[in-house]
Design a protein around this nucleic acid. Structure first.
Length: 488
RNA sequence: GGCCCCAUCGUCCAGCGGUUAGGACACAGCCCUUUCAAGGCUGCGACACGGGUUCGAGUCCCGUUGGGGUCACCA
């Protein structure tokens, strides 16, 4: 359709407002996969044309989030490139220069309508159930006169003169041709009264100047695409290929939103989702591997990438599946890596010996889905937890199996066995305890649970003897004594 | 409401005219088992509806319904 020989160049163009959005990562992922698959380049452009809402903090958060995810761009504000500046607020002269061309060719016109008038027009249209849009009031103004007024400093915007008749069609990579009647397209503002361009103008000008060959963005942009197409036409520029990705959805199928879903990438990072897992999950939203694999790396997605494998239906964002996937990635980590991660993320007390972390790692990895669960899941490794004495008494279906006297007696036996155990190892402890069961009325199940409570303070824990091995003999005996004390 | 997009299990995907409609998450049961996990096995569960086209439609076309997006000097 176009760009036969042009090297592939794609971009994401987030606006730096609020927290870095999961949708940005989603679109970035697909752009990056396509670019890398074709040996093209992936660009980050900051669309900060909304002076009121854009902030530098938000911009920095976008950089950080993208880098955290490993969605590294080849060009961007913080990494440079040959097509800069990559921040629209630094390209204002370019937009003014370009929009002047449109003014000269009659494709755009000055508009002096006040916000009040526009509101009135809109209200009237709404009441009459008319088409909503600018009524063309200033379109017929004398060109020279309008230019004079503008030059004299009268507040104004510049609008696109959309043809009143005919239709505009563009090709979407995933959806085929999409047609709009020109009569339904508004005379969009191109340059705002503050001298800043609107998204529409800046986006088209920059995509052209930056050599963007494929505009892959979210589905919500489809309705503004004909305006962009008209702009390319007015400028006499070559059209890019358009690719509109489906929108991520809330459970109720509305566009994913902060109120109904966590949308901040910072949140995912804080919760302890691994970048690889989040990327994999996002890839699952709308994409599938040729062999049906659900767990795959970014590189594997890049290698297999094809628009043919992208779905158009809007996927519901399912945190439960992300949790499962994150668990898969956590379990797949080498124990050394997980241990290092626990320390680096301060999920464990500072100064914890590597040997301890390494011993714990396999037990913990298997039991958490998010890294943020680690501190609670390992609490009893660092301190003796409080618990009611009754937790120590084994019961079956609510009926007591051993009373406090029996339980205390067996714990004292256990303590003396453990004190004399030649080796403080899982194997030694387990065989000693099973032997004790053979000689007493205690079933392993009951004894082990009582010991589990004594050692960890919880009915749910990492494997008993492995845990006690990590705790060490001294600490374990101390906790046994505490338990015995509670039954006195 | 106008315009535009979309439509296979509850959810995410496979299917690109001929399939007992497959997999994953979740859920349920069983197994393993010192708890919880993890793992294994089994089960539950879908082509929105109506017309065409065709020897034959989940697959192609049209309509209906449903869902979504968009109608700003926000992107």
């Amino acid at each position: 359709m176009n760009g036969k020989a042009r090297p592939v160049r794609v971009r994401i163009a987030p606006s730096p407002t609020g927290d870095p959005h999961v949708g940005t990562a989603y679109i970035a992922l697909f752009n990056l996969c396509f670019a890398r698959h074709c040996g093209g380049r992936f660009v980050l452009r900051i669309e900060d044309t909304d002076q009121a809402r854009s902030t530098r903090e938000s911009e920095q958060a976008i950089f950080d989030a993208l880098h955290w995810l490993g969605l590294d761009y080849d060009e961007g504000p913080d990494v440079g490139g040959d097509c800069g500046p990559y921040r629209q607020s630094e390209r204002l002269d370019i937009y003014r220069r370009e929009v002047q061309k449109l003014l000269d060719s009659g494709h755009a016109y000055y508009c002096f309508c006040t916000a009040e008038r526009l509101a009135e027009v809109r209200a009237a249209q709404q009441q009459r159930k008319d088409r909503i849009g600018y009524d063309g009031h200033c379109r017929t103004l004398d060109r020279d006169e309008a230019a004079r007024r503008a030059a004299a400093g009268e507040p104004h915007v510049i609008r696109l003169a959309v043809p009143t008749e005919g239709e505009t069609t563009f090709h979407d990579q995933l959806r085929g041709p999409i047609t709009f009647q020109n009569s339904t397209i508004d005379d969009q503002v191109l340059l705002k009264s503050d001298g800043f361009p609107t998204y529409h103008l800046a986006n088209v000008v920059d995509d052209h100047l930056m050599g963007i060959t494929h505009v892959c963005r979210a589905e919500e942009w489809i309705t503004s695409t004909p305006k962009h197409v008209l702009l390319y036409g007015a400028f006499g520029w070559e059209f890019p290929e358009f690719v509109h990705m489906p929108l991520l959805r809330n459970q109720d199928r509305s566009k994913i939103s902060k109120r109904k879903n966590p949308t901040s990438l910072d949140w995912y990072r804080e919760q302890g989702f691994l970048p690889e897992a989040l990327l994999n999950f996002l890839g699952l939203m709308g994409y599938s591997m040729p062999d049906g694999r659900e767990v795959f790396s970014l590189q594997e997605m890049i290698d297999s990438f094809s628009w043919d494998r992208v779905k158009t239906g809007g996927p519901v964002f399912d945190l439960e599946k992300l949790d499962w996937l994150n668990g898969e990635y956590i379990r797949a980590m080498p124990a050394e890596a997980f241990a290092a991660r626990m320390a680096a993320d301060r999920l464990v007390p500072e100064g914890t010996p590597d040997t301890t972390l390494l011993a714990m790692a396999p037990m913990v990895q298997q039991r958490v889905k998010r890294l943020c669960e680690v501190p609670d899941a390992t609490a009893y490794f660092w301190r003796e937890l409080d618990y009611p004495a009754t937790d120590l008494l084994p019961s079956k279906k609510g009926q007591p199996v051993h009373d406090a006297v029996e339980t205390r007696a067996v714990l004292e036996q256990v303590r003396s066995v453990f004190e004399q155990l030649p080796q403080w190892t899982t194997e030694a402890m387990e065989s000693a305890m099973r032997a004790l069961c053979d000689e007493s009325e205690w079933k392993p199940r009951d004894l082990f649970m009582t010991l589990r409570i004594a050692a960890t303070g919880r009915a749910v824990s990492t494997p008993l003897f492995e845990t006690m091995e990590v705790l060490g003999r001294e600490e374990s005996l101390k906790r046994l004594s505490t338990a015995i004390g509670r039954l006195s």
